[in-house]
């Protein structure tokens, strides 16, 4: 399922955060959004996952416009792994993941065996089965993030939004999470800080700066020393390793 935005604008007070953003993520494509802090990456994603409402512009999820979809329906099409998930109450890991089934449930419907099977399967995918009965609040930041990914997977959506999902993760789990997402075969749009991770996993990259799109294309096209200097004001060198994968070295 494709995701498309057209001329999306949003302001907080007098500050315009998004100044007419148009992006298109094709079916089953893995698209990264890079850019400095405050460039509007998260704001754009929040518009897509409906936590923020754009002041103007359109967002399509598949063939329907987002604002005409009920939230239950959009949650069946699009799942989210966001940055912070802190809960003031104790839930077990299994309960947290089970909440991912909520958009598929009618008001009075009970959780059935199928739901529990999906939860189990998603926990296996993120390698958190052994933690299923642990209290969510006792997990480390990285473990919590994997549980949240499992919850998003339990939604069984054709689209996935990752809002800087690897922030709390060590390198092992950063790579693990990105590999899992990569193999899902769903449409993914992800805000990414680490340019090397972006280069390794994205089909295409959008570059944002000051609420505008400052570049778009494949990692090879976008991640050039010139663009990195223009966007981040740092000098960089792009090299290829023995397997032909690109790496960005900061000088």
């Amino acid at each position: 399922m494709n995701i498309k935005t057209d001329n999306v604008r949003i302001s907080f007070g007098s500050a315009e955060i998004l100044k007419g953003i148009g992006v298109e993520i094709h079916d089953r494509e893995f698209v990264g959004i890079i850019g400095p802090n405050g460039s509007g990456k998260s704001t754009l994603l929040k518009c897509i996952y409906r936590v923020l409402k754009p002041d103007s512009g359109c967002i399509w999820l598949g063939s329907e416009e987002l604002k005409h979809l009920p939230v239950r329906e959009s949650a069946r099409r699009l799942a989210v792994v966001a940055q912070h998930n802190y809960y003031n109450f104790e839930f077990s890991v299994r309960e947290v993941v089970l909440m991912g089934r909520a958009p598929h449930k009618k008001a009075l419907e009970r959780d059935n065996a199928e739901d529990y099977r999906i939860v189990q399967e998603c926990l296996e995918t993120v390698e958190m089965v052994d933690f299923a009965d642990r209290s969510f609040s006792t997990l480390s930041g990285g473990e919590q993030q994997r549980v949240i990914l499992a919850r998003a997977l339990a939604q069984k959506t054709p689209c996935l939004v990752l809002d800087e999902p690897t922030n709390h993760l060590d390198i092992t789990h950063q790579l693990q999470l990105m590999k899992i997402v990569r193999t899902l075969g769903v449409t993914v749009v992800s805000a990414i800080h680490d340019l090397n991770i972006a280069a390794a996993f994205c089909d295409r990259i959008y570059v944002m700066k000051d609420g505008r799109i400052a570049g778009a294309g494949t990692p090879e096209e976008v991640l050039t020393p010139e663009l990195i200097r223009r966007i981040y004001q740092v000098e960089a060198e792009v090299v290829r390793d023995s397997r032909g994968n690109m790496h960005i070295l900061f000088l």
């Binding site: 239950r72 949650a75 966001a82 909440m99």
Partner: peptide, 15 residues
């Protein structure tokens, strides 16, 4: 249950 996760997460979970 969803209320404890907050309004933002609830919206992404369809409520």
């Amino acid at each position: 249950n969803l209320m404890l996760l907050g309004d933002e997460t609830s919206v992404t979970l369809g409520t």
